[in-house]
Each structure stands twice: as structure tokens, then as C-alpha cells.
Design a protein around this nucleic acid. Structure first.
Length: 564
RNA sequence: GCACUCGUAGCUCAGCUGGAUAGAGCAUCUGAUUGCGGUUCAGAAGGUCGCAGGUUCGAAUCCUGCCGAGUGUACCA
């Protein structure tokens, strides 16, 4: 349920009654526990505007808020802060909702059609560490939007139309009979082709000719090209399955899919006057930007930008998207700013369409340098995943009680979960320092901590057996705050969705787990001396906590286990 | 050169639509606890929020300048 919006609507009601219109219309979370649950700071600013005493205004607002049953306490403090405490009986009454399959979170009234563009591997190459963040963050966002009720279309905009294919085809032709076998290791094949390309200008020229042939629809070239794509996609699918990422063939719509549309995009831009010719190329100029966006090269070829514009057109017109999120590395901010600007100017995306670049920073090693293998090469994503799984095995307690399959599964859930959570728990805009020891750790804000907390609560619930799931008695402040936290899940999810910030969810889960641990430390649940009624009520809190953790982690793409 | 992002505790990070004494975790120190499963608990210490101005009753948060790091910068994706 949305606690915060209840508070906010209570505020709005009071403004209406007092016939005032403050700039700040929303409450924020209290900065300190002794101030209550929420605080409203708008009275000071309004007082200045009206040239009145801030405490007086605050008192007037507070007087009205006091009549609302959701508040237990409304106090004016300091220069004019209004401190709000949610009523325990209200929290208690609402808490059983958090036990349902959606952890009490409602489905949005007005769902939106959202495209999330993420992962985007390059064809004919292995996925590497650079794809990790896009894949993991994009998938979490897609899950989040979906959970809240939006209609989500996952798009994997694969790089399947670059000049590298000319190189690959040329090399394939050159290798003759042997070539077919070599394809099984496409990575090596690519490297060999690249080496040849760099060394021989004659070969390079041939490669360029093949690009032209391919793009003009040569059947032989297309067949080979198709084969390269299929092999790579199989590799990618293996990675997605292992990561538990919800991408499959139906999400794939690569650059090549927009090929036929590129010509139209350019002429549309020219006809509307958005683009014009400069030094032989077709460009879009911007007021403040010195560099134009080039949509057609002097030699007639099209570019990344052109494809992106065609993709926007497709997503708006054919898919009906109202929000399009590009989960792409921060280095491309300028590119997207220009592409979005152009799409808006040219009417490819109307005012009702929201275009967002969900930028993220780089993956660095402990010394702050780009994350590489010891030899200085790029780290293959599949190797990274496998290492995470291997490392996770060390955290399984009583390993001899499990079958080898169970061990594999637990290690996968923990290892992959840790890999994802480490990425998702920090603000995506910063660079991300990759550290095995930090991510696979029981201490701190890690997947393991969350998964362990879940397993432990689960164990309490199992030992407790059946119990009645009714309104809990909130016997102390710890229980009241824990319950309120559980009910705040929806507020957090909505904020994370609006800002496309998965780390807000992780931060919430960590706080929730921390609060539960504190509660559990102080308030015994299963001990014999606990009265039945209290035991019952604490079990309800435990169950609701576990449910919120499970729901939150699932949105982040992380599984939980009943036992670790 | 220009543009963008970033600079918060020893480390990793929150906080940034302006609000009360700037918060976590790790590491360090002191005490309690052998407890419902290993994430214990309480407390201490740790900060000129890069620097300097400005706006404001109030600035880590907004504005300007500077310093430092990173990234991008006309036909790659």
C-alpha cells in the first residue's frame, strides 16, 4: 500500500481547507526516529511568501491533520516542521495485506506501455563484462515496471549489422573448407579475421565489398550472416538463462531489422527541415552543440543514429510505447541526447512519449582501472558467472546434506544473486568497483545477507507451524516501525520505477532486513515464555517481512532459497 | 578547447525536488551475549560533504568560478 500518498493526500486536504497553496506539497521521511515517521517542511517557505509566522501556519495545518485517523501524533517542532507519526492501529489493520502474493502492492491504475532496451550484445563476439550492467539493470527495471502493472516490451537491440560482418564473411570465404569447423569458436574466428583485416589492406578492401554485398541483399552473404547471428545468439541465450534474465529470441530486434526504414528516416528528417546537408553528409544541427548528429554519411551509408531513430519510430508507431528506456552505458549520453532531441523535433516521438537514457557507469577493478583479466583482455561474461557460482559454493553450510544437483542450484542462486545484487545495490550512475570479497559476503548490503535473512525467517516460520494470519499486536516501537517499513514497499517501488533506480529497492530491503534483525534480537518469537497471542503476532510480522524480501529480490531478478 | 558525469568517514557507498546534531556497512576500539541457523547486540572513535564565493531564515543539496578524476567530442557501434 502507498503510505506516503495517504500522508500526502491528507496534506493536500488540509491545504485546501486552509485555502493555501504551498510550493512543497509532499511530506518526506522523517530524518530522525524521534521526529516520527514523516515530516512536512513546507510551512517555513510558505510563511515567508505570506509574511506570516511559520509556526502559526504549521499549527493550522497540524490541527487539520490531527483529525485524520491515520495519524497517531502530529506535532509542530522547531521553526515550523510538522512531525507526523502514523497510528499503530492503522498500521496493524493494514499489515495483513502485506501477506498476499504481491506483498500488499497494488497494480497501477494507469498502466503505461514501456519499452526497455537492454543488453544489446554485439554479434560474432562473446558477451563480456561490459554487458553485465546493461543486462542486469535493464532486466530489473523491466521486472519492476511489469510488477507495477505496466505493459513491458523487452527489446534486445543486438549489433547485427556492422561492418564486422564483411570482415567475417571475407575470412570465411578465404578459409574455404576449414571455415565451417572454426565457427564453433566464433570468438577465435573473429580475432583471426580481425588480425587479417588489420594486416592486409587487400583483405580489408574485400571485407568492405562484402559489407556492401550483404547490405544490398546478396543471398550467399545473407545466409552466412544468418549463421553468424544464430551461433552468437545461442551463446547469449546460455548467458541469459544462467543469469535468470528474462530475454529470449522474441525480444531480439537487431539493427538489421531497421535497414529498410533508414532511407525513409533520412528523407523525413530532410523534408521536415530538421536535417540538412553538410560536407556531403546529412546532419542534424543543434543550438548549443558544436557537433552535429550525422544520419547519413557522405558515401551514402547510414549510421548508428539513423538506426536508433528508426527504432524509435518502430517502437512508437508499431509497439505503441509511451516510455522508452535505453539501458546503455553513460559514455553514450551525448549520442542519446541528440537522438532524442532529433526524434522530438522531427515528430518521430510525440510529446506523449518519454525517451530516457538509463545511463550507468563503468565496471572498474579495486584499483579503479577498467576491469580486465590478468592478461589485460576483456573478461567474458560467462566466465564471470561461472566464477561467481564456484565461489558461492564456499558459503553452503552442511554441504554433505545436499545432493550435487542441490549444491549446484544453491551455488547458482547465491553466486548469480551476488553478482547481480552488487551491481543493483549501488546508484547506477556511478562507476562500479567490482570486488568478489565484498559481493560474496554475509556482512553488509549483499545478496547473501538478504538471502540468508530470508532463509532464516523461513526457518522460524517452518518451526512455528500453522498460525493465524491476522492483524498483529504492535507491542513496541520496534514492531511498529518494522510493520510500517513492510507497508512502505509500494512507495519504494513506485519511486524506483519513476526514477529508474533499482538501488532504491536494494537499500529498502537492506533496511528492512536490518530492522527485522533488531526486532528479532529483542523480541523472541518461538521461546516458550512468549504468550500465544504475542507469538502469533510476531509470526505475522516475520512472514510479512519474508514476503517483502522475496518480492523485492524477485523484482531485482534474484531468487531466494528456503535453506542455504 | 568544448560538453557531460563525478569528487561525502581509512575503504565501499547512501543522502542531492534546500530543512533540525550529514547516515549505513566494512575495517578499528570497548562492553554484553554462546542465544530462535552463521547476517549477534549496545556503545566509542572516525567528516573543513574537493576549494572559494553567491542566493536563502536555513546549503552536502541550487547558482558561479577554480582544482582534481573520468568520459565523449563530424561521417564506428
Amino acid at each position: 500500500m502507498q503510505i506516503k500518498s495517504l500522508v500526502n493526500s491528507a496534506l493536500l486536504e488540509s491545504f485546501k481547507k486552509l485555502n493555501i497553496s504551498p510550493k512543497v506539497t509532499e511530506a518526506s521521511e522523517a530524518t530522525k526516529p524521534e521526529f516520527g515517521d514523516f515530516q512536512y517542511n513546507g510551512a517555513m517557505a510558505l510563511a515567508k511568501e505570506l509574511k506570516k509566522n511559520p509556526r502559526e501556519i504549521a499549527a493550522e495545518i497540524a490541527e487539520i491533520l490531527k483529525q485524520n485517523e491515520i495519524f497517531e501524533k502530529v506535532e509542530v517542532a522547531g521553526p515550523g516542521f510538522i512531525n507526523l507519526t502514523i497510528s499503530s492501529s492503522f498500521i496493524s489493520k493494514k499489515l495483513p495485506e502485506a501477506l498476499n502474493s504481491r506483498a500488499g502492492v497494488l497494480v497501477k491504475d494507469e498502466p503505461v506501455k514501456v519499452v526497455v532496451d537492454y543488453s544489446s550484445p554485439n554479434m560474432a563476439k562473446q558477451m563480456h563484462v561490459g554487458h553485465l550492467r546493461s543486462t542486469v539493470i535493464g532486466d530489473a527495471l523491466a521486472n519492476l515496471f511489469e510488477f507495477l502493472g505496466d505493459e513491458v516490451i523487452r527489446q534486445n537491440h543486438i549489433g547485427d549489422w556492422g561492418t564486422q560482418f564483411g570482415m567475417l564473411i571475407a575470412y570465411f570465404e578465404e578459409q574455404g573448407e576449414e571455415a565451417g569447423k572454426q565457427l564453433s569458436d566464433l570468438e577465435e574466428f573473429y580475432k583471426a579475421a580481425k588480425k587479417r583485416f588489420d594486416q592486409s589492406s587487400e583483405f580489408a578492401n574485400r571485407a568492405r565489398e562484402y559489407v556492401v554485398k550483404l547490405q544490398s541483399g546478396d543471398k550467399g552473404c545473407l545466409k552466412l550472416w544468418r549463421e553468424f547471428i544464430d551461433i552468437t545468439l545461442e551463446h547469449c541465450q546460455e548467458v541469459y538463462d544462467k543469469l535468470g534474465v528474462n530475454l529470449d529470441k522474441s525480444c531480439v530486434r537487431g539493427e538489421s531489422a531497421y535497414n529498410d526504414e533508414l532511407k525513409n528516416i533520412v528523407s523525413q528528417l530532410q523534408q521536415s527541415g530538421v536535417a540538412k546537408e553538410s560536407q556531403g553528409a546529412v546532419c542534424v544541427f543543434f543550438e548549443n552543440s558544436e557537433n552535429p548528429l550525422i544520419v547519413q554519411k557522405a558515401d551514402g551509408g547510414y549510421l548508428y543514429a539513423t538506426t536508433d531513430l528508426a527504432a524509435i519510430k518502430f517502437r512508437v508507431e508499431k509497439l505503441g510505447a509511451k516510455r522508452i528506456c535505453y539501458v546503455v552505458d553513460a559514455r553514450q549520453s551525448e549520442h542519446f541526447r541528440q537522438v532524442f532531441d532529433t526524434a522530438k523535433k522531427a515528430g518521430i516521438a510525440g510529446d506523449d512519449v518519454q525517451l530516457e537514457h538509463i545511463a550507468f557507469g563503468m565496471v572498474l577493478d579495486k584499483s579503479g582501472k577498467p576491469f580486465k583479466t590478468r592478461e589485460g583482455g576483456t573478461v567474458k561474461l560467462i566466465d564471470l558467472i561461472n566464477e561467481a557460482i564456484e565461489r558461492a559454493k564456499g558459503f553452503i553450510k552442511n554441504a554433505d546434506e545436499y545432493t550435487p544437483e542441490e549444491i549446484e542450484n544453491i551455488a547458482r542462486v547465491v553466486g548469480v544473486g551476488s553478482l547481480k545484487y552488487a551491481d543493483l545495490s549501488i546508484n547506477r550512475t556511478s562507476n562500479y568497483i567490482f570486488d568478489w570479497d565484498k559481493m560474496l559476503n554475509l556482512d553488509g548490503n549483499t545478496a547473501l545477507y538478504m538471502q540468508y535473512a530470508y532463509a532464516r525467517i523461513n526457518s522460524i516460520l517452518n518451526r512455528a507451524g500453522e498460525f493465524e494470519q491476522r492483524e498483529p499486536i504492535l507491542s513496541d516501537e520496534l514492531e511498529r516501525r518494522l510493520a510500517l517499513k513492510i507497508l512502505s514497499l509500494e512507495d519504494v517501488l513506485l519511486k524506483a520505477s519513476k526514477e529508474a533506480m533499482p538501488h532504491l529497492i536494494a537499500a529498502y530491503l537492506y533496511e528492512l532486513a536490518g530492522m527485522f534483525m533488531k526486532f528479532y534480537e529483542n523480541n523472541p518469537v518461538l521461546r516458550d515464555d512468549v504468550p500465544q497471542e504475542i507469538k502469533q503476532s510476531r509470526l505475522v510480522l516475520a512472514k510479512a517481512t519474508a514476503n517483502a524480501i522475496k518480492t523485492g529480490l524477485k523484482i531485482l531478478g534474484i531468487e531466494v532459497l528456503d535453506r542455504i
